[in-house]
């Protein structure tokens, strides 16, 4: 549902700066919704997408995370580099996925535990990792480690693909 992401979210990327190999960049995406909440997941450049995933294991306090009420009290407090889960690939390689933002954990995608391949097939949509309420909302770029959509595609040399754009209907007449 590329159209949905493009309509409702501003897309950012959390860049792997520690990588020594230019081909192995553990990048993640951070999609900020118009209501400021953020959905995170693995970016197209993440090496895990080239592997066969055998297991996705969330941290215990992420699995047990529960928020209550409109104010979402009780959510797990996150730093930008808090590890949320470990992905084990069939070749034994392990990848750590991080929270990307300082904030509060609202929800993890528990579907990934039962169906790890979802991450690979639908990494941009239903294979999302978690929903976070970021601490810095207004000046979102002040969250350390983030770069913008275009910048990311240039940096990783990935062509930009967009879904169809539909004209907005503001007329008074019937369709």
């Amino acid at each position: 549902m590329r159209t949905l992401i493009e309509r409702y979210y501003t897309q950012y990327y959390f860049i792997d700066t520690t990588s020594t190999d230019a081909n192995i960049t553990e990048d993640q995406y951070v999609n900020q919704h118009t209501n400021d909440l953020a959905v995170i997941g693995v970016a197209p450049s993440h090496p895990v997408l080239q592997q066969e995933i055998s297991k996705i294991e969330f941290r215990e306090n992420a699995v047990n995370n529960e928020v209550s009420g409109v104010r979402k009290t009780g959510g797990f407090k996150l730093q930008s580099n808090t590890i949320l889960c470990v992905i084990t690939c069939s070749n034994g390689k392990e990848y750590f996925l991080r929270s990307c933002l300082k904030g509060k954990l609202l929800e993890i995608n528990k579907e990934l535990i039962n169906n790890p391949s979802l991450l690979k097939t639908n990494h941009a949509t239903s294979g999302y990792l978690a929903i976070i309420e970021p601490m810095i909302k207004d000046k979102f770029m002040e969250n350390p480690g983030l770069i913008k959509f275009e910048e990311y595609h240039t940096l990783r040399n990935i062509p930009i693909q967009k879904g169809p754009v539909f004209l907005k209907d503001n007329t008074n007449g019937e369709d």
Partner: peptide
């Protein structure tokens, strides 16, 4: 997600 900021 659209209303998650104001609904439980």
């Amino acid at each position: 997600i659209r209303v998650l900021h104001r609904r439980s």
